Simulated assay, not measured.
Amino acid sequence: MNLRRSYLVGIVLVALSAVLSALAYPEMPAEMATRWGASGEVNGQTPKLVALSLLPGLSALLLGAFAVLPRIDPLGENVAQFREQYDTFVVLMLAFLAYLNLVVVAANAGYEFEIAQALAPAIGTLYYYVGVLSAHAERNWFVGIRTPWTISSDEVWERTHERVAPLFKLAGVVAVFAALVPAYAELLLAAPVAGVALYATVYSFFEYRRVGA
């Protein structure tokens, strides 16, 4: 996916999310449900102007940030080596936020469904692609497993990302499976990716010591 097309898609996704919020505004309650507990009960509400502005606004900010980061990264030339995967991740992240906005609007419009089940496939897809991105990412300051030890050594960076790439993909598969077992959905969505992050941190430390970087 080339740069111009990917960011055009990103702009369209942000615009669609903003249009959805604008169209939904008159129909939404003054206080919108924005947080749900493990059993699906509402445990947090937000004024509708804030709730409907938050995700489109966040999407716009992220799109701008993702466009700028490779230009200000001291290792920006490395980002160019996996720019296709980077740009695809940007689109997937913005698509996820647009979908999340849709889920929040639908839930507040009275449609009944399990929030965790609705989000599980989208979260799983995002986790899986983080695995794809990890397999291609070169050392940089903003994307990937950025610990003091990976940032300090190309070899540690490469070995750590080789290890965690399939684990992130596995976490994505587990997250999708969470849609089938709503009683354990939150655990299946959070625990695997948290475990991968912890493993990556510990592994990079010991790998750095092993290679004597």
Results as ranks from 00 to 15, higher is better:
3 L>K: 14
6 S>A: 15
13 L>V: 10
17 S>Y: 00
19 V>F: 06
19 V>T: 08
20 L>S: 11
24 A>P: 00
24 A>Y: 00
29 P>K: 07
35 R>A: 07
38 A>M: 15
39 S>T: 15
41 E>R: 13
42 V>M: 11
44 G>R: 05
46 T>C: 06
46 T>P: 04
48 K>W: 02
54 L>D: 03
55 L>H: 03
57 G>Y: 05
58 L>E: 03
64 G>E: 01
64 G>N: 01
68 V>N: 00
73 D>V: 10
77 E>Q: 14
90 V>G: 09
101 N>G: 04
106 A>M: 15
110 G>S: 09
110 G>D: 06
110 G>I: 11
113 F>L: 08
115 I>H: 01
120 A>F: 03
122 A>K: 01
125 T>I: 15
127 Y>S: 08
129 Y>H: 09
129 Y>D: 09
133 L>Y: 08
135 A>G: 14
145 I>P: 02
147 T>S: 15
155 E>S: 14
156 V>E: 01
162 E>S: 14
164 V>T: 13
169 K>S: 08
172 G>F: 07
172 G>D: 07
173 V>F: 12
175 A>T: 10
175 A>M: 10
177 F>Y: 10
178 A>N: 01
179 A>W: 04
188 L>D: 02
191 A>E: 03
193 V>W: 01
198 L>P: 03
201 T>H: 06
203 Y>V: 10
206 F>H: 09
208 Y>V: 07
211 V>W: 04
